[in-house]
Each structure stands twice: as structure tokens, then as C-alpha cells.
Write a protein that binds this DNA or RNA. Structure first.
Length: 468
RNA sequence: CGCGGGGUAGAGCAAUUGGCAGCUCGCAAGGCUCAUAACCUUGAGGUUCCCGGUUCGAAUCCGGGCCCCGCAACCA
């Protein structure tokens, strides 16, 4: 591998970022830092951003008496701000209203048409004005929309369609052979069975949506927001295409594993290497929802516990591929248990012991700890972040145990050579911990490395101070 | 019989191919005093949802049943 291009889903800006959005971005950042360490930062590209077109956005903007663009500018900034707080090293924050993106979308769609994979058709359906969307018969109760208590209108729309059917075999083969890896396995099976059932062609343009990118050859239509949004990955590639991994949530797998590949094939472009699907978070075992009032602003947690703690918590608490539950109580428990009592206290006690008894310096040639093989990297490469972190904490446990079992504070008085040797081993293990932790907790990693590799080791400041 | 995920210690979860049912937290007892009231050791705690089947052997495989959570909206 000489290059690695990683993307996250770009978020729809009808609201503010919540803790569920953060999980995906943090995971992508961990992969970015991990591969950067392996192949050099210049060879890794990390892109995230916001999805800003569509009727809904225009509607929200109107409610607030804002132009759509002004609304988009404001809300997009909520996202980039949150990602900065979480210390994400993205190379580009792409917005679907960016000029170069709009041009790329037009170019790609034109290419799909020139290649003969678009056709003009008519869509007829039951349109609910309240939803601004088409409903199917099964959505209706007594012929009316159950949410709006209105009868939908029968509407005929002219649209341009993408011939997905022309590519379904190719896509299926690519997924089966893992040329397009769909992870985890259960998601791969899900998509394959979806492809077996057959995939209908999708409309790539809409006649009645104004806030969007116009079709180059028919300006009465704008490009369907999903088509517009997916192309961001190509817009922002900057020579890195094809993507190594699209990190996404489970709800949008269909778009990334079928529609997006079909678009790329229609435009003669290579397929991405992997679609990595994560689960959903619940808060206090309930779905995240505004009406339940359990939406968590990641900025609040970062302000209180620090970005590293939040990054650690999100990836340690929940297996990445699965749904999982979070809460401030659980975060606090990880913070106090794993971080303050476990790692933080370890660094304090060992640096203190070395400062007090060796004046912070190991004699020339002190034998240290021989590192075992790298057990952490394969876990990160397989997106098993929670297991990687659990593994790192086994080193923390080993170090604490070693200090205790050897009674280092006593050895310092009775057998200084032995003290020197054992404490050097512990320091070395702490260094391994810090290095392994670098992608997950960059600031903490730096602090620990600075403390244990100093010419003269001194008692470290608490890494994770008590809160409140 | 709509689709999917799940039911394992008080809580949260794990257990490759069927092979001694484990981990973290909490609880109890003990140890220690280097350390952020932190750390270490030991212990208690199980009908693996229920019934049946296959097997030398089932949390795991098969059949049947019960229960919980998603799949309409704000919402990744």
C-alpha cells in the first residue's frame, strides 16, 4: 500500500452534529493517523464535509428567513467546528456548495449521459406535500398520509434515470470477491441479497427542487441530492481516487455499495476499495432523537472531559460494526476507571518512582523491556478499535501489576540495581502504550512520550484530572 | 407467518470450527502506601429466556414457543 484515501459520510446540515456523527469521524481520524504513521502523512488523505442541497434545506432556511446559502454556511460551520474540537486531521472539509464540487458533479453526470447510461423517463407516484416526497401504498392509512392527515396527489414527474441494472452483475462480483470490500460480513450479505432481488433504476434529477445543482443539459431539473452528495468523494480526491475506505453508517449502505458504484461505472471510474459500515449509538438505551431530548452535543463532552477522552470512549465502549449505547455516566466511568485510575495513575506513579530514586536518569546500559510482536495494528486494520484499546489496556494492567508485585518503592531501598531494571521495564512498557495510543489519543500520547523519554524523568502532571 | 438485531453473574458485554462459561464495573474480604482516595490479590455471584431434538459432549447446531429493541416523524 502506498496511498490511503479515507472518507466519512458528509453530513446533512438540517441540524447540528450530535454524538452519533462523532463516532464515525473519530474512527476515520484514527485510521488516518494510523496509516500516516505507517506510510507517511503525505500519502494519506482524509476528507469529511457537509451535504447542503435539497428541498428540505431550502425549506429550513426559509423558516429562519435565511437564504439557503447563508443557512448552509452557518450550519456547515457547526460541523467543522465540532470536528476541530475533536482534533480531527482532515485534509479537506468538502461542501456540496463548493464551486469545484458543483463543476465535478456536472462533469460526471455529463459523462454518464455521454456514455449512454442515462435515459429520460417519467415517474408517477403519490406525492405528499407535507413530506415533500413520494409515498407508496403501504405508507398510507385509508388512502391518506398518516402524518399529515392529507390525501397525497397523483403526480407525474419527468426525470433522468441511471441504468443501475446495467451494472448490478459487475457490482455483485466486485463485492463477492472483496474487490469492493463491504465490511462487516453481515452487511456484505445484506447487500448481496439486495442485489439478488434486483435493483430498480433511480432518478438522478428532480424537476421541482430549486436548491441544487442544475442538470447541465436541462436546467429545469436539479440533480438529486444523493447523486450530488456521493460525488463529493471524487471531488475531494485530489489525485487519491479510488478511495481506500468509505466510512459510513449502516443506514446509507445501499447508496454506497450499489448506487455509488453504479455511478462510477457509468462514468468509467474505478470503484472504491472498501465500504466500512458502523452501527448506531443509542443514548441511555434510547434512539437519539430531538423529541426524546437525549441528543448529546459532542462539544459539551469535549469541553468537560477533553477530546482524547471522548475519542477513547467512543471507540472503546462500542464495537465499531455494532449498535451500542452511550451516556455521560458511561463516559465518566471510562474516564475515571480506565483513564484516570488506570493509565493516568500509572504514569504518575512510575515517573515519581524514577525521579525520587534515580534522580530521573537510568544508568547507561540499563536493560529494558523487549517488545513483543505488534498485536495492535492488525486489530486497527480490521476496524476492531475496541479490541485494540482493550489490548493496550492489558499493558496498563501488566505495568501496574509489575510495580506492585516487585514492590518497587521497597526495592528502591533494598536493591537499587533490581529497582533500576524493573522500573526501566515499566517505563518501556509505558512508552509502548503511548505509541500504540497515538492514533486514538494523540495529545495524551504526546504527553506520555515527552514524560518517559525525557533526559531527566520527573513526576508527570496528572493526565486525567478529577472532574468536579 | 413483514424484515432485521438481540435475550449469558446485580449492570454492561465476550466466548474461532460444537470441547473446562469468561471480561469490565459493582459487591465482600485481605494486602500495599510509589501513585490522581489511586494500585495488587482472593472471593461470592449462572437453570446461558423456555420446551423439545441431534451429539460422547450444545451458550453454540435443528424444530417450536415467549420477551425486548429498531424499521413513521425531528434523527448518522
Amino acid at each position: 500500500m502506498d496511498k490511503f484515501y479515507i472518507t466519512t459520510a458528509i453530513d446533512y446540515i438540517n441540524g447540528k452534529p450530535h454524538i452519533g456523527h462523532s463516532l464515525e469521524k473519530v474512527a476515520a481520524d484514527v485510521l488516518t493517523r494510523f496509516y500516516a504513521n505507517k506510510i507517511g502523512r503525505d500519502n494519506v488523505r482524509f476528507v469529511t464535509g457537509t451535504d447542503e442541497h435539497g428541498a428540505k434545506i431550502a425549506q429550513y432556511a426559509e423558516k429562519e428567513n435565511l437564504e439557503p446559502q447563508a443557512f448552509a454556511d452557518r450550519n456547515s460551520a457547526y460541523f467543522s467546528f465540532a470536528w476541530d474540537q475533536l482534533n480531527l486531521q482532515y485534509d479537506r472539509f468538502v461542501r456540496t456548495t463548493d464551486a469545484d464540487h458543483e463543476q465535478t458533479v456536472k462533469d460526471l453526470v455529463t459523462k454518464m449521459k455521454d456514455n449512454g447510461f442515462l435515459y429520460e423517463g417519467e415517474y408517477e407516484g403519490l406525492y405528499c406535500v407535507g413530506h415533500e416526497a413520494f409515498l407508496t401504498d403501504k405508507d398510507l392509512v385509508d388512502g391518506a398520509c398518516p402524518d399529515h392527515q392529507t390525501k397525497p396527489e397523483l403526480v407525474k414527474e419527468k426525470n433522468w434515470f441511471l441504468k443501475i441494472s446495467a451494472f448490478s452483475d459487475k457490482i455483485k462480483t466486485a463485492i463477492e470477491k472483496d474487490e469492493l470490500l463491504v465490511w462487516p460480513e453481515s452487511r456484505k450479505n445484506e447487500i448481496l441479497s439486495l442485489l439478488d432481488q434486483g435493483f430498480t433504476d433511480i432518478a438522478i434529477s428532480r424537476p421541482n427542487v430549486k436548491w441544487g445543482i442544475p442538470l447541465p443539459w436541462d436546467e429545469s431539473q436539479t440533480i438529486y441530492v444523493w447523486v450530488d452528495a456521493l460525488i463529493n468523494y471524487y471531488t475531494a480526491a485530489d489525485g487519491f481516487w479510488p478511495a481506500s475506505a468509505h466510512v459510513i453508517g449502516k443506514d446509507i449502505l445501499k447508496f454506497h455499495a450499489v448506487i455509488w458504484p453504479a455511478m462510477l461505472l457509468a462514468a468509467d471510474l474505478p470503484l472504491p476499495k472498501a465500504v466500512i459500515t458502523h452501527g448506531y449509538l443509542t443514548v441511555d438505551n434510547k434512539k437519539i432523537s430531538k423529541s426524546l431530548g437525549n441528543v448529546i452535543d459532542p462539544n459539551d463532552w469535549v469541553a468537560k472531559y477533553g477530546s482524547d477522552a471522548v475519542r477513547y470512549f467512543l471507540l472503546r465502549e462500542v464495537p465499531f460494526s455494532d449498535d451500542g449505547d452511550v451516556s455521560e455516566e458511561k463516559l465518566r466511568s471510562r474516564y475515571e476507571g480506565d483513564l484516570a485510575n488506570g493509565l493516568g495513575n500509572l504514569v504518575s506513579r512510575i515517573t515519581t518512582l524514577v525521579e525520587k530514586n534515580l534522580d530521573g536518569v537510568f544508568p547507561e546500559g540499563t536493560k529494558g523491556f523487549t517488545a513483543p510482536g505488534d498485536e495492535i495494528s492488525p486489530l486497527i486494520e480490521q476496524y476492531k478499535f475496541h479490541e485494540a484499546l482493550a489490548m493496550i489496556w492489558q499493558y496498563v494492567a501488566w505495568a501496574n501489576k509489575t510495580v506492585d508485585e516487585n514492590k518497587l518503592w521497597e526495592l528502591a531501598k533494598t536493591d537499587l540495581p533490581k529497582f533500576t531494571e524493573v522500573s526501566k521495564q515499566v517505563i518501556d512498557v509505558v512508552e509502548i502504550i503511548a505509541k500504540s495510543l497515538a492514533p486514538f489519543m494523540p495529545e495524551t500520547s504526546q504527553k506520555i512520550l515527552a514524560a518517559v523519554t525525557a533526559d531527566k524523568i520527573v513526576k508527570a502532571e496528572p493526565l486525567f484530572p478529577r472532574i468536579e
